[in-house]
Computed example of a mutant assay.
Amino acid sequence: MRGIFLVPALLGLSTTAFAHDAPSGWKYPNSCCSNLDCRQVTQTAISERPQGYIIRATGEVLPYTDGRVRISPDGFYHWCSAAGEEHSKTICLFVPPRAY
């Protein structure tokens, strides 16, 4: 009987952000994240070229018009990849608003 109360009590103590939350607090959309796929990345992890955004880890090119490219609510790059792996296919890419 004692174990029944332990689980809810432990769940209530957690203050850690869920994996589907960006560090700044906004929530990654369910269509991009399965609680482990998305993370904030440095500006050097993504480069902008005439053909689109280049994911350095994979070499993928996402054209600017690609539906996976979305505006980042906090102005930082966020990359969602299959199973959250460094070298897997892009699910979504959140980018800062473009100045031009």
Rank of each mutant, 00 (worst) to 15 (best):
M1G: 12
M1A: 10
R2Q: 10
G3N: 11
F5T: 12
F5R: 13
L6D: 07
L6N: 04
V7P: 01
P8G: 08
A9S: 14
A9H: 14
L11F: 12
L13P: 09
L13N: 13
S14V: 14
S14T: 14
S14N: 12
S14G: 07
T16F: 10
A17V: 09
A17Q: 12
F18M: 14
F18C: 13
F18V: 13
A19Y: 10
H20Q: 10
H20Y: 15
D21R: 07
D21I: 00
A22P: 07
A22H: 14
P23E: 04
P23K: 15
G25S: 07
G25E: 11
W26K: 01
Y28C: 04
P29G: 02
P29E: 04
N30H: 11
S31G: 08
S31Q: 10
C33S: 12
S34F: 11
N35V: 08
C38G: 02
R39L: 06
Q40R: 04
Q40D: 00
V41K: 08
T42S: 10
T42D: 09
T44Q: 11
A45G: 01
A45M: 01
A45L: 02
A45W: 02
A45V: 05
I46Q: 03
I46T: 05
S47K: 14
E48A: 01
E48V: 10
E48P: 02
P50H: 04
P50V: 06
P50D: 02
P50N: 08
Q51I: 01
Y53W: 01
I54T: 09
I55V: 13
I55H: 03
R56P: 06
A57D: 03
G59P: 02
G59W: 09
G59L: 06
G59N: 02
V61M: 11
V61T: 15
V61N: 15
V61L: 10
L62G: 03
L62H: 07
Y64R: 15
T65F: 05
R68H: 06
V69K: 11
S72R: 14
S72P: 13
P73C: 11
P73F: 15
D74M: 11
D74R: 10
F76W: 12
F76Q: 15
F76M: 11
Y77S: 03
Y77L: 00
H78L: 03
H78R: 12
H78W: 09
S81I: 03
A82M: 11
A83K: 06
A83S: 09
G84W: 07
E85H: 14
E86C: 00
E86D: 08
H87Y: 09
S88I: 00
S88R: 12
S88L: 03
K89R: 06
K89D: 08
T90R: 05
T90Q: 05
T90G: 02
T90Y: 07
I91S: 06
I91Q: 04
L93F: 05
F94C: 07
P96W: 09
P96T: 13
P97C: 09
